[in-house]
Design a binder for these strands. Structure first.
Lengths: 209, 209
DNA sequence: CTTGTAAATGAATGAACGTTCATTTATTGA
DNA sequence: TCAATAAATGAACGTTCATTCATTTACAAG
């Protein structure tokens, strides 16, 4: 019996096509949103007939799942592999890494938090697990820094979300080649993040009132 | 001649129906995304046949435009109308207002930055104008505070975006009735925001390196 | 009580959707 | 060289889509 669908490609040409499908879908999903992109559009980008896509991905949903899952695992792998000057403190490492990676992979990042609701429950849960793993990196950094008295965050989990939201918002407005350079951008955010979790008192306004 | 479409309703029953359409579309768009919601679903929620929707909105796109434009103008109006203790400083006013409003109107807020790409160019431009107006409020607060020496932000426009991204991220994870109360949440973020733009030096790590 | 018209119906439009599949074409290992 | 099968085709599947419109129903003003 010749099973028809869901058989993942294996020969070199097939792997090449699958890669082109991922690339085309990534761009389309990032620009128009998953629900607004048709398999026909992706096929046209790849230069293939719609039916051929099903030699490489069993469903449209699986393309999205593939993109999001591989993004999250590549994000975590990139953090593990990242190299920094030996005297750079952990918070600076995280901020610089996060900004750099999110600017490089803007489409993947965008999809991974815009299209969460288009994931079926199982796929959604898998992504959420990875996301929490990434957040836990920053939470640990903050907690250790607080324990050592270098930082002060009243609630490390909340601070984690605040910082990540702040950094992840960058690609929505920042454009390379504009007024602000990438290094300058990193410095600006690093300063704000450091101050936000600094141990120094700055709430004089409320006490003098 | 009986013109058929795009005639906005006027009688009491029609205004009532239009309101129900907005309400149903708001919930659906927020939960599933504009592109994934059908006019048939909205009509079913309202308790009406699909064709009847066109007595109140000329197209599906106009429903989205209506929701987003009225959200932005209501946001700005709410800021103008907001009342605070007379001795509360402007930054605290903004932070508390923003968090409170965004938690109250989570669906509207969510749509207004998730569905921007589903807006036709004219509608998109109109929304962007309002968004910039809102950002300008915070930028002014920061610039005046910096001039007075109460705050220090190396780049007020960047700080504005950082703070707004940080605050706007709250509704993606915060749930009322959970471990953290709304007042406590506001306090946590207020502390971080104040520190992030505080005039005090906190970059000892880089200097001792 | 009639009349104008707002509002809703019910059925239909053509187009687009994701997916299937018998078939053809291309490539590879034996 | 040839059988096995990966990969792509082209056409079709049933379904759903946003929208149109002639018709009916409901209501408010004269």
């Amino acid at each position: 019996m010749a099973t028809h669908a869901a058989k993942t490609a294996s020969r070199p040409k097939g792997l090449e096509t699958a890669k082109r499908v991922r690339k085309a879908a990534l761009k389309r999903f990032a620009n128009a949103g998953y629900a607004a992109v048709s398999m026909r559009e992706i096929a046209a980008d790849v230069g293939v007939r719609p039916g051929a896509l099903y030699n490489h991905f069993p469903t449209k949903q699986d393309i999205l799942k593939d993109l999001m899952l591989s993004h999250m695992s590549e994000l975590l792998a990139a953090w593990e592999a990242a190299e920094f000057p030996h005297d750079m403190d952990p918070l600076e490492r995280f901020v610089r890494f996060h900004i750099g990676y999110h600017l490089e992979r803007a489409d993947e990042v965008f999809i991974s938090y815009m299209e969460l609701r288009n994931l079926e429950p199982d796929n959604f849960a898998a992504i959420e697990t990875e996301r929490r793993r990434y957040e836990a990196i920053l939470t640990s950094i903050l907690e250790e820094g607080c324990a050592a008295g270098r930082y002060r965050a009243d609630n490390a989990r909340v601070a984690t979300r605040a910082i990540i939201a702040m950094l992840t918002g960058i690609p929505t407005w920042y454009r390379e080649g504009g007024r602000i350079g990438k290094g300058e951008l990193e410095d600006l955010y690093l300063t704000m993040v450091r101050k936000a979790v600094s141990p120094e008192r700055t709430d004089r306004q409320t006490e003098t009132g």
